[in-house]
Design a protein around this nucleic acid. Sequence first.
DNA 1: TTGTAAGCGTTATCAC
DNA 2: GTGATAACGCTTACAA
Lengths: 385, 385
Amino acid sequence: MSTIFDIAREAGVSITTVSRALNGYSDVSEATRQRVMEIAQSHNYYPSAAARNLQGGRTDTVAFAPLLREHMESEQFFKEFLGLLTLSAFRHNLSLLATVADTPSHTTKIYRELAGSGRVDGVILADIKPEDERIALLGSLKLPFVAFGRTPDFAELKYPLVDVDNAAGTRAVVDYLVGKGHRRVAYLGGPFNTSYSLHRYSGFRESLKQHGLPVDDRLVIADLQERAETAEAVAQLLQPGEDNSRRPTAIVAANDHLAWQVIQELQERGISVGSGPNGDSIAVTGFDDLPFAGYVQPSLTTVRQPIAAISDILLDLLVMLIKNEMQSKRKVSLSAKVIRLAQDKQSGGHKQVDKPGAEESEQPVKWIGAMQALVVPELVIRDSA
Amino acid sequence: MSTIFDIAREAGVSITTVSRALNGYSDVSEATRQRVMEIAQSHNYYPSAAARNLQGGRTDTVAFAPLLREHMESEQFFKEFLGLLTLSAFRHNLSLLATVADTPSHTTKIYRELAGSGRVDGVILADIKPEDERIALLGSLKLPFVAFGRTPDFAELKYPLVDVDNAAGTRAVVDYLVGKGHRRVAYLGGPFNTSYSLHRYSGFRESLKQHGLPVDDRLVIADLQERAETAEAVAQLLQPGEDNSRRPTAIVAANDHLAWQVIQELQERGISVGSGPNGDSIAVTGFDDLPFAGYVQPSLTTVRQPIAAISDILLDLLVMLIKNEMQSKRKVSLSAKVIRLAQDKQSGGHKQVDKPGAEESEQPVKWIGAMQALVVPELVIRDSA
DNA sequence: TTGTAAGCGTTATCAC
DNA sequence: GTGATAACGCTTACAA
């Protein structure tokens, strides 16, 4: 590949001039600029990203490095999020560097390396846990980041984030179910190790309490992962021992995947799945509204996470952060200007992105802090409840 | 962030020594190495990727830059492939740089830039078209690449590729349908602008001919994209005018998405979907076996593209190519050694990858040239046909 | 308007 | 074993 020297030589100017011409500086004669640009084009010349980056510029790249879970190949949420992040990044004129971490400690290493090696301008965090070291780590590393999710102390820590109001989501579900007459509602969840799983569960409890219904611990089973565990959990719910009145008429699953497992278990036992607290059918709800949710039979009543809108906001925030970081590499706190910028979004949707195609779905977004957004998810009523 | 100078100063050695110690050279005393490594660790030092890359090293990054299609947000195949590429890249100790191209000409620009700026060591191409300029382009740019898919002249061009035997896939479908007694089989496809869409269609024709059945052009409708077009196509198939014997008993759709649209159209018309050439039900088949294929009702009989295995092979090939490229930046053709390496895979699966987790599904792979693999897809029989 | 020259942080090539 | 020093290709003061 040709370098800036080749272009300079052929154009009969210095490399400085080439650099200026190509970077759109004003102090270059139009004639020179034309010539330089033509020659550059004919040589298929593009400035070396490495050289450019080395002298202090940005990489125009952001990273996403989720922790590799078992059976990640089949994890729909991961793929959805990754795909939509890629699209959002593109609209923000950014590239997405996708990696994966093996283990929690490997995660730390990856972020250290990302920060140390300067490969990216910022990172996107997901699957935030209640005590997530990554937040402090990235802060100390001075690597700009945005979180999808939040820790309980998000208000004090003041890191930029977008979260779905998961509690509101399950509350909406339970409200809906209770509204349809359900009184015995079970909750099936995965491991309670992420913030969102805790929020979903607490939304469930809150709503029940609000309706004056008891939370029957025998109707709550968590830590479900493998299909076999779900099978066992369903079996447990269906065998209330002596008293048949303990059998739930509705099952709230913490995610779509789990909901689908539950539905299959019920169907295998000849129990019909669907709405109505009466009869012997059982209502089942999910959470996420992944693409398959509308396809399964019966189609899933679930809570939609507007992932496309979320990734757009995440990148809006990250871009602002990076710009701020670039402007002044010494200031520790966010400049007031950036914060104001972020809050301006409150009114008027998210038209920050450069390119068309962003979700303009007027997602209700609540700003719960400077650069901290809470997206209210929507209940999607289908056939399963 | 600290640099190599900081480490050198603190360790009381030269930067050369630091570099050597950290890069595992043998000519460094064990004592020095220990000290240097400790100090580096304590400073959270990682060599600048830019500086390192500038002096000629690799980036350990490969790019994937698909063309942005309309409604890409909802394109499952894109997300599947992207997610699995990310996982495969990780197993090969590579990062994946994901971008998107706006337009075909933007695609060209992206590859030129990728090559010129040296941001990545190689790229993965997908959606290969019968006349795909990208192959010549990347060749001339000397940017290592692997293609998922192939042009008709792949044998002469000799570029590295992995393809699914799409023709064999639809042949298997038709064989199966004809075996079940179907005689009037329709074909519904998208635009015939990619190699795979052409291959799928030709497989369809081949199989019919092999079974001595005529190809009724009125039963072939292509270029379907929007749901409305599919609706019209289905309507057309169902209104054979005067002669009712022209109505197909089976519909082969070119992909799962289309198959699902067809099923919905049929169901809306009160036509049951399923196997058996008799009765008034119509069999429908898809292609891809995307995650939702098993979820829809009736579940899709389809052809499975083993995407996980494919992306592993793609990256196996790309890694070999890159290594070769690094070794000798002047040689034009592949070294015999690399070719041999690639063909060795023929016997013994694909255990090339460093980390566990690769699909060891013993996918049948036929090598149709040096570094050119053809994966035979599998017919998955479910309820829709 | 243009050119000179000093970095940016590595690794590689020589010396010692 | 270890250390100067020269690239690597670019941007950006500073001069002219």
